[in-house]
Design a protein around this nucleic acid. Structure first.
Lengths: 182, 182
DNA sequence: GGTATCTATATCAGTTTGATATATATTATC
DNA sequence: GATAATATATATCAAACTGATATAGATACC
């Protein structure tokens, strides 16, 4: 997805600064997508210069100033147009373009070159890591106010449920089949 | 994982050309990792100049010449050393560094901006796509000879089983919960 | 007073991709 | 039998992106 569309989409959930957009990527979206500051800030500047977003400089007591961006009518139109265009492209290609770089799977692929104890440790840590992820996705308590908008999205409920299901079945599989790696 | 370690790892399964390494990424590895020609060819040149791999120019009848790279003892040592180093880093960080860019999840996140029929089509196509993926992972027939080495790895059996399990539970979830997106 | 951490924006070298170029050979189409 | 499309094979490069670093005000804690 184009970075422009993505930033506009996140701004459609409410006005936000570049820093707060980054927090969404580092928090609730971290398992699905990510953009760096080096992408976010130039994108916001470009979107502003083309009137897809407006910007208010906010001086905060107790914190540095921040620039809060708000999506404009023009921006919302562009976002919808791009989403529709992207969706059709995915349908036409029959491929949803998911791009995965899994260090863990690569490590498993070359597992035979690891000392046995190292492999054991890696698998144990992976299980612990997945259990933590599971807790994260299941967590239903309060979240920081600027992340609440994401939490309120219906689609996030669907996605969190899916992630929970996937991790649970992955964990079960790993526990049942880990001896296949020996 | 460093591109050097990864190329060495794939060459450890048998001598290969750059083109054939790319085929592994486009075929059986496509769901877990990918490197482009722009990365593969310079990496192989660098590895060769540093004696981690040796190279034989093969003239083939009926096909263009190819450069077949073979991992050296020095290369195998470096690979093992790097794998061990990486593994420890993952354990220490408690994060296996999986990086996912899922266009599909982003599209779902902004599903409310899509026309209802478009969303329906996207979800239907996704189900079809996942069913095809499932067939792919379950397929147990013959594969092209240069991909057979991968197929023979014990770890690939484990990974294919895991992928199958994940896709199956994902499909079940999607069929049961897709109305949550309306 | 020192140091660590958080909020906030900005920049940039280095890496990677996606596209393009080049070349040969095979297969399909017309 | 000519032409187009596809497959094999290597190489290169502009454009995009990341990860690191710089800068700076404010709080927290010891």
């Amino acid at each position: 997805m184009q970075k422009d569309t993505l930033c506009l989409g996140l701004l459609s959930l409410g006005p936000r600064s570049g820093y707060e957009i980054k927090q969404m990527f580092e928090g609730p979206l971290s398992d699905f997508y990510s953009l760096s500051f080096g992408t976010i800030y130039p994108t916001l500047n470009k979107l502003q210069s083309e009137k897809y977003v407006s910007c208010k400089q906010l001086s905060q007591s107790k914190k540095p100033d921040k620039k809060v961006y708000t999506i404009t009518k023009k921006g919302k139109d562009l976002m919808k147009e791009n989403l529709l265009g992207d969706a059709s492209a995915y349908i036409r290609s029959g491929n949803f373009g998911d791009q995965i770089k899994s260090e863990f799977f690569l490590l498993l692929l070359f597992a035979k070159y690891l000392p046995k104890e190292t492999l054991e440790t890696v698998l144990n840590e992976r299980v612990l890591f997945l259990q933590q992820k599971l807790e994260q996705f299941k967590y239903d308590g309060p979240v920081p106010s600027d992340l609440q908008a994401l939490r309120n999205e219906k689609s996030i409920t669907f996605i969190r449920g899916l992630a929970t299901t996937l991790i649970e079945s992955g964990l079960t599989y790993m526990e049942k089949n880990r001896e296949k790696l020996n």
